[in-house]
Design a protein around this nucleic acid. Sequence first.
DNA 1: ATGGCGGGTTGGACCCGA
Length: 255
Amino acid sequence: MKLATWNVNSLRVRLPQVLDWLKAHPVDVLCLQETKITDDRFPFMELAAAGYEAVTAGQKTYNGVAILSRHPLSDVVRNNPLYVDDQQRIIAATLSDIRVICAYVPNGQAPATEKYAYKLAWLSAFHDWVEQEKHQHPRLAILGDYNIAPENRDVHDPAAWEGHALVSPPERDAFSRLTALGLKDAYRLFEQPESGYSWWDYRQAAFRRDMGLRIDHILLSEALSKQCTGCTIDREPRSWAQPSDHAPVIAELKP
DNA sequence: ATGGCGGGTTGGACCCGA
């Protein structure tokens, strides 16, 4: 069983890459963020032809999430029932006995902005809901763009990033509060390459210079983390023409 | 220091991402 997450930054633009990637990496589940497409325009047919059913929480222009799966999905929940939010950032579904949450955490812009306050409030409510979900579904996986680099080793230049959104202590605390619920950062269950980043800015030739951050994560409940045999970031699509600025992250579970 | 790239929008300067 392979679970993956990818912020595609517009599914309309990236659909060919998603299909190519799925052909080479036929994962069981792929969580997408920043689809930037309404549900009535979602490419259900193209994905079905590739063997994937999809559930979506779409939105025009911004945000938008989806779960693609080779297996039937049930019990779909859109948005956080504990938090009123007109931005489509969460979708959850069950496949066989695994509960999957796909999340696109707000960016936060910069400390002391309204967007930063929204991010922290959003994360606090997300924590409370995840706590409930975990009680209901002990086999829980949360995949997505967390917009948080949990530690300095997840940042190419921690000094340059100090004081910025994505690395600030309150955001990292919010991430720790999630893991304190008994969720493991799948990537850190294993030995990893030194620069294990999942996002590189489009500007400054950041990818070529490997100026990245690791902000896309797969959190696994205890039961699932014990079955996890690997977690990798596939940076190859970031090197393609017209790429997303994020790379896919993949976790493998064995029975 | 600023903006740099890329996607989107009801049409082309501006918002947003991270």
